[in-house]
Amino acid sequence: MYTAIDLSTDKFIETALNLFNSTMSLLYDLLSINPTKGAYKGGYGTVSKLYTTFSAIGVSLMVLFFVYGFCRDSFDVKADLTLNSSIKEYIRLIIVSNLIANFITLVPKLYSWAIIMLLATKKESDMFDAEKVGASIEEGIGFGDVGSWLLSILFILITLACCCIMIFATFGRFLNLFIILPFATIALSTIAGGGNLSHTGFSYIKTTLTYIFEIVIMGVVLALSGTFLSSVSIGADDNGLLIMVEVIAKMLTITAAYKGSENICRKAFGL
């Protein structure tokens, strides 16, 4: 026996909207995954080994940059090398050496804090009423059967692209964090030199914090998206094409805000 497949416009649109709703619900679960534990623990173990390997280079550079900074301040004719400035140099060296030794163990703790903050944003919200929106678009689209069917194909492709972009952004933060962590010791060693040289180390710390805590911004976007998406003006003027345009615009807006969470985090906190 053969099962009849419904290829009508409203079913295509309903399927696309159900896919988008399911993706929005799935994203919270994906965001709450800690890349330092569970299924990704093996990957983080590889990162830790690389971190240890690069530590030898980082420690050597730390000593080199410390000597450079000390000599720079010693031969500064505009400022005398006082006891206070010498103590400050050694305090900076102690801080950097502890950072290099413990940074890889701090990341899991920071990520756990980020997940706690993420869970605080979790909110059960209504999304698109897929069946109602699909029926409204089909009734008022006014392009004939073929035209409506082609528009529904375009609609499902746009929806699929939005879902893929958001899922890619969710998993991409793992890779970004894994890529930069092995080089932590090299970047942090520049802080021992002080002055403009230390900007590299501080920039590295800001970037790492951005990759860790951007999931909180993503969680806020998901928390707000439910109300934003469920307020579609269905049947306002019985124009199915305008309803479709409104739905697509809202999906694209949510996708852009979700994907741009990193930039929002950087601008909001100066990271």
Rank of each mutant, 00 (worst) to 15 (best):
A4H: 07
A4L: 10
I5Y: 03
I5P: 00
D6G: 02
F12L: 07
F12P: 00
T15R: 09
T15W: 01
A16L: 02
A16P: 00
N18E: 12
L30K: 04
L30R: 04
L31P: 00
S32R: 05
N34I: 08
T36N: 05
G38K: 10
A39Y: 05
Y40D: 11
Y44T: 10
G45T: 13
K49I: 15
L50M: 14
L50V: 09
F54E: 11
A56R: 12
A56V: 15
G58S: 10
M62D: 10
L64F: 12
F65V: 08
F65L: 14
F66T: 12
C71D: 08
R72M: 11
R72C: 08
D73W: 06
F75D: 06
A79S: 14
D80H: 12
T82A: 05
N84R: 07
K88W: 06
K88Y: 09
Y90E: 07
I91W: 10
I94W: 07
V96T: 14
S97D: 02
N98P: 00
I100T: 05
I100Q: 10
T105S: 13
L106M: 15
W113A: 05
A114L: 01
A114K: 01
I116E: 06
L118V: 04
L118R: 01
L118F: 00
A120N: 06
T121Q: 15
T121R: 10
K122E: 08
E124V: 03
M127A: 04
A130E: 11
K132E: 11
E138W: 00
G140H: 14
F143Q: 09
G144H: 07
V146K: 15
G147I: 13
L150M: 15
L151P: 09
L151Q: 12
L157N: 07
I158E: 09
M166T: 00
F174V: 05
L175H: 04
N176E: 14
F178N: 06
P182L: 15
F183R: 03
A184H: 07
A184Q: 08
A184G: 12
A184D: 07
T185I: 08
T185N: 12
I186T: 10
I191G: 07
G194P: 07
G195R: 13
S198A: 15
F202M: 07
F202Y: 10
K206F: 08
T208S: 11
L209E: 03
L209G: 06
T210A: 14
T210I: 13
F213H: 05
E214Q: 13
I215G: 00
M218T: 00
M218P: 00
G219K: 04
V220N: 04
A223K: 07
F228Y: 09
F228V: 01
S230M: 02
S233T: 04
S233G: 02
G235N: 04
D238C: 02
M244G: 08
V245Y: 14
E246N: 07
E246D: 09
E246F: 02
I248W: 03
T253D: 02
A256T: 09
S261G: 03
E262T: 11
N263I: 12
